[in-house]
Amino acid sequence: MLTAILVLAGIGLALGALLGWASDYFKVEEDPIVDKIDAILPQTQCGQCGFPGCRPYAEAIAKGEADINRCPPGGEANIKQLAELLGVEAKPLGEGLEPKPKAVAVIDENTCIGCTLCIQACPVDAIVGASKQLHTIVADLCTGCELCLAPCPVDCIAMTVIPARLDNWKWQYPVIHLRQVA
């Protein structure tokens, strides 16, 4: 009886130690889910989701505090990817959120007073300028987050939709009139 107990306990201990060692030795360095979510988000840092940036939103999704359909710049494609990553159903963009065409902010250089308020607001440092100097937005770096619009005291920033050009033009989804054929 005692022998049996001892043997079993011994086996248990040995296997437990083996498992413990294995879990440590074969540890898989996996991206935490927050990083994976953050990698999908468009990094506009616009805050339209209600969180102060993409990372906080990613954290909220990971904790289950936020839905996956709160990101208008990411749009449908983003929701699809998030749904796949998290193994949930994709859904349409959340209420009150509208997808907008991609746009960049442009400063009206005649009106800018050089107050630097927009520079402080820009989450990606896409505005260059110094105090009392004319500011300008580096279009390539602008994510279109619109965060610079509100702080400007003279309303000199406007959003400009990026027009279709030869270098960003895309082939459209082929239209097949299957049902209309007579």
Binding site: D38, Q43, T44, Q45, G53, P123, V124, D125, T143
Partner: peptide, 13 residues
């Protein structure tokens, strides 16, 4: 690529 660049700039900021 653009969002990766934006992330880096945001992190740096």
């Amino acid at each position: 690529q653009a969002s990766q660049a934006a992330r880096e700039r945001h992190d740096f900021r």
